[in-house]
Amino acid sequence: MKKITKTQSVLGIVAVAVGFVLMSFAPSAAGYKIGDSVADFSLKNTVDGKAVSMASFPKAKGYIVMFTCNHCPFAKKYEQRIMDLDKKYAALGYPVIAISPNDPSIEPEDSYDELGKHAKEKKYTFPYAFDETQQVAAAFGATKTPHAFIVNKENGKLVLKYMGAIDDNTDSAEKATKHYVADAVDALIGGKAVAVTETKSVGCGVKWKKS
């Protein structure tokens, strides 16, 4: 009897340990892969307080889902480029939906109010949504800001076509030579396959809630 109890307790400890390991990898290990069907989301747009989702743009052919935020210097460097992407591609059927995934208790600059204030000041032409539960960032597998995802509408499905960097020069838009997001959207508009589907970039890690 004693023996069984011992075995059980050991198994219990192992199970707990495995649980911890799985938990600690949860935010980064998950996330869509290229070609995956993407679930729509519903988040509060900090610009007008209304719910925003991909379905809010019924005429769109796809979406540039951009995880970004106020505080991150990399996001600041890319802000004008994100605004320019929407100016060019919204009219061509690929609007930007910006989402801030950070926990404002870690980064107060990324609170709902601050996001909305900033978007209005800069006159964003696209929604700037607040992912309060961080479930959308986790679903996409967003790990940093900025982190771009391009979704395409195909036979009624939302399909992930690209994820990663915006281009290959954070410091200077003029010096960038590879325009990953623009090239991917151009390919989709032209009915071609996206050549570079995944890239990596340095960025500010998503400020996940401390559980």
Binding site: A165, K175, K200, S201, V202, G205
Partner: peptide, 18 residues
């Protein structure tokens, strides 16, 4: 600045966040 060109040379597990 072309991070995509070298991040994987540090480690394939690295997504680029610091």
């Amino acid at each position: 600045l072309d991070y995509n060109a070298w991040i994987n040379k540090i480690d394939a597990k690295w997504d680029g966040a610091i």
